[in-house]
Every structure is written in C-alpha cells, then in structure tokens.
C-alpha cells in the first residue's frame, strides 16, 4: 500500500504506523462518564468500504494523518493532517 502524506508526498505504507478508527479523535469530555468512554475505547463501526482511520507517519514527518480508505479494495480515498481535521471540527 502507499499513502500520500500531505507533507511528504507519496510514500510506501511501511513508513507508517496504523492506529485504528478515526473516532479516536473524538475523545469524550472528562465528565462524560464511563459509558461514553467505553464507546470511545472499545466500540467500532468496522464498516465494509470506506473507513476513516488514523495513521502515523512514524518513519517520515511524524504527522498523524486522518485517512479514508476502502477496506475492501485498500484504495486510499483521502489523506489529511489529523490536527487540521480536528481543528476544522472545533
């Protein structure tokens, strides 16, 4: 697989570390309670098709990336800097 890092350009996936679903960006507020955290930590949509996920360009620029990827075809649909996405949401 290859990912087009917004900073480094097109790179072999072997430079990246995969973390999991992009829902990890939406950490509940401290007071949200256990159920909210349980959902955050454990539950996953695990869709077939486009999946939003987090990759870390560990052997590259060390940017966390928000990647949309088709998990059936492994086609990369989009790659964005996670901090930009997060700030855009806020």
């Amino acid at each position: 697989m290859r990912l087009k890092c917004p900073l480094c350009g097109d790179r072999d996936a072997r430079e990246f570390h995969y973390r999991g679903a992009a829902k990890l960006m939406e950490r509940p507020e401290a007071g949200a309670g256990e159920a909210a955290f349980y959902d955050y930590v454990y539950l996953r949509e695990n869709p077939v098709g486009a999946n939003s996920e987090l990759w870390f360009h560990e052997l590259g620029c060390r940017a966390w990336l928000c990647v949309s990827r088709d998990v059936s075809s492994h086609e990369i649909l989009s790659v964005e800097l996670a901090d930009a996405v997060k700030r855009g949401q806020a």
Binding site: L54, F56, R62, W64, L81, A82, D83, A84, R87, A90
Partner: peptide, 14 residues
C-alpha cells in the same frame, strides 16, 4: 513518543 504525538496532534491540537 508516538502517544505524545497522538495526544498533541489528534486529541488536543489547540
């Protein structure tokens, strides 16, 4: 270090 980068970029980029 990866975890710190994660917290800084993904959780609290502010």
């Amino acid at each position: 270090l990866r975890h710190l980068d994660f917290c800084a970029q993904v959780l609290w980029p502010d």
